[in-house]
């Protein structure tokens, strides 16, 4: 009976996570827009799917993503090769971002903006190459971000100084970047970090900080995601200025 009860309770947890969305959408549909809920059956099946999915995800997180991130952090720390650790950090940031669906969508939007602003020619080929260039730019910037973030953990620098430098970079780029690109650039910071990247990168940072002597996993281990959402803003504005 015990495993059964554990499954039920974790399903209930997931349902509770989902409840606010259901309430918000229900309230606006019934009370504000005053319309009935369409396709009730399909929505109910969908909610069951979301609840099952969230439960499986959380279990898989604790079984797979967290342990592998930490194991690799320990192995790199005991191997003692900073070079390979930094190569790994860059590869992880680049590889997880370049195929990110949200980024592909944003890059296509950005190409349309650039075409309507006469920054590039408005045909299929020019837009595709602009979007591809943008994707590579963002992926390189995220790889660079994770690399810097890992280096910070090794050195134990306080995060706020690096972040403030990043903010100043964003402000300076905003002054010089073409107006049309600013909105997309600011948004690109948020969309780059996907649901699989976040747990993996977090586990890597925390694992590194706890295996290096003198580092505190709480103050030093977090912060990789922060870099990964800051550098794309700078790099995308730079891309807008160059292309």
């Amino acid at each position: 009976m015990k495993p059964f009860r554990a499954i039920v309770s974790s399903l209930l947890d997931s349902l509770r996570d989902l409840l606010p969305i259901i309430l918000v959408i229900g309230f606006f549909q019934l009370a504000v827009l005053q319309q009935p809920i369409p396709n009730f059956g399909e929505i109910a099946i969908g909610i069951v799917f979301v609840v099952i999915g969230l439960t499986l995800f959380v279990h898989g997180l604790n079984m797979g993503l967290f342990p592998i991130g930490e194991t690799m952090a320990y192995s790199f720390a005991s191997k003692g090769s900073i070079f390979w650790l930094l190569v790994f950090a860059f590869a992880l940031g680049f590889g997880t971002t370049v195929a990110e669906p949200a980024l592909i969508a944003v890059a296509d939007e950005a190409a349309k903006v650039a075409a309507s602003g006469n920054m590039i020619e408005d045909d299929e080929k020019a837009r595709a190459s602009y979007a591809f260039g943008l994707r590579i730019t963002v992926a390189v910037s995220v790889g660079f971000a994770i690399l810097i973030g890992v280096f910070r953990i090794i050195k134990g620098w306080p995060i706020q100084y690096l972040i403030i430098v990043g903010y100043i970079g964003v402000v300076i780029m905003t002054i010089f970047a073409p107006q049309e690109i600013i909105g997309i650039a600011y948004d690109s910071g948020g969309v780059t970090t996907s649901t699989i990247t976040v747990p993996l990168v977090t586990a890597l940072g925390v694992g590194l900080a706890s295996s290096i002597k003198g580092r505190n996993p709480m103050t030093d281990g977090f912060g990789l995601i922060a870099f990964a959402s800051l550098t794309p803003m700078i790099f995308v504005m730079g891309y807008g200025m160059v292309v």
């Binding site: 399909e42 969908g46 909610i47 799917f49 979301v50 999915g53 439960t55 997180l61 604790n62």
Partner: peptide, 22 residues
């Protein structure tokens, strides 16, 4: 590997459910 498979299945269900319902 089991954990990875659970994450994949979980995300699949999660995204499809959102797409169908919300």
């Amino acid at each position: 590997i089991t954990g990875f498979i659970l994450v994949l299945l979980g995300l699949g269900f999660f995204l499809e459910g959102l797409e169908a319902a919300l």
